[in-house]
């Protein structure tokens, strides 16, 4: 019999009936599912290998590769022969004084501000839907997510119509005193940040909702019963209890924001708002600097890996505290 053959008794209840608790323990000891789990995980592993590990290796090969006589990039598949200096150049370019320092700095600033705004907007909404909406919870969630069934690109294109000089936003603002109609699409950082917030807020809303929904209501009741006011209860009970949800939601939202290039492409197109994602797209799509583009992909991935490592360390520590 091979390790993959189905066990004779698959239903633990049946096992209890036939063999008693001792029988189950013996069966488990005799047949640990060592082969079963790798087998079940294999599609995911294969997927990751085919669509992450191999492409990422190709990016590395491109970043460390050479140019032929026509300035066409030639990937170098042998890691020993990689041009490390070329990859280091990509890292140097995002440091102060480097050619990509401004896009890198902007990307971090935009993402931090957009993320903060996402939290400020999404937290009360998620809180209300998760804890106060009662029977309407499902409906509210559906309504909140309905606009996001439309493709990201389409929604950004709609913003162009809304924000253009003779668009609806200025039509609304125009009659207001002390407000001048604005050139929203003239390369403003604020427009770009608002675009990021609008585009990515559902990524934050859903995990946050899930985290808030899971908070044990008795903890909040206990706090109130002990005479603590609603604000302090929120600060000392609800917020700490949703900390892991906040971290997870922040990570899920920030990762794609860091690599975003479409928002700038559609809402600005100004060198003043160029993000690192745009530099990567330009380098890979146009001209003879594919190696720099590949190098910048590695730079961004490294930066995000550091952030992810912090997230994993933090969740791991929280899990240990619970234990």
């Amino acid at each position: 019999m091979t390790a993959l053959d189905p066990p004779r008794v698959t239903n633990p209840a049946q096992a209890t009936f036939r063999f008693g608790r001792r029988g189950i323990a013996e069966w488990r000891a005799a047949r640990p599912p060592r082969a079963l789990w790798p087998f079940l995980a294999s599609p995911g592993v294969l997927w990751l290998c085919a669509f992450f590990v191999v492409p990422f290796y190709a990016v590395l090969a491109m970043a460390g590769g050479t140019l032929d006589e026509f300035a066409t990039p030639i990937p170098e598949w042998n890691p020993v022969a990689w041009n490390g200096e070329q990859i280091l150049d990509a890292f140097r370019s995002v440091l102060p004084g480097g050619t990509n320092w401004n896009p890198m700095r902007r990307t971090v600033v935009y993402v931090v501000i957009a993320l903060a705004l996402c939290f400020v907007i999404a937290y009360p909404v998620a809180y209300y839907v998760a804890r106060k909406a009662g029977r309407n919870k499902g409906l509210l969630l559906l309504l909140l997510l309905a606009p996001f069934w439309i493709n990201y690109l389409m929604r950004m294109l709609a913003w162009i119509n809304l924000l253009q000089t003779d668009g609806y936003v200025n039509d609304v603002l125009d009659p207001l005193p002390f407000v001048d109609p604005s050139e929203w699409l003239s390369g403003r950082s604020s427009t770009l940040i608002l675009g990021l917030v609008y585009g990515y807020i559902p990524f934050l809303l859903l995990p946050l909702y899930a985290a808030l929904d899971r908070i044990d209501g008795r903890l909040i009741e206990a706090s109130r019963d002990l005479g603590i006011g609603p604000f302090r209860t929120f600060c000392q009970v609800t917020l700490p209890a949703s900390r892991q949800g906040l971290l997870a939601a922040g990570a899920i939202t920030a990762l794609p924001m860091f690599g975003d290039y479409y928002t700038q492409d559609l809402l600005s197109r100004s060198p003043r708002t160029q993000m690192l994602g745009n530099q990567i797209e330009d380098a890979l799509q146009q001209g003879a600097s594919k190696q720099l583009g590949a190098g910048l992909v590695i730079v961004l991935s490294t930066f995000l890996t550091v952030l992810m490592a912090y997230y994993l360390w933090s969740t791991n520590r929280a899990a240990q505290e619970v234990r």
């Binding site: 006589e69 050619t99 530099q279 001209g287 003879a288």
Partner: peptide
């Protein structure tokens, strides 16, 4: 020439970086 083409490309990317 390919090297000159790359030079134009690099300088234009510098412009786009802002």
């Amino acid at each position: 020439a390919p090297t000159v083409e790359k030079l134009w490309d690099d300088i234009f990317r510098e412009f786009k970086a802002g």
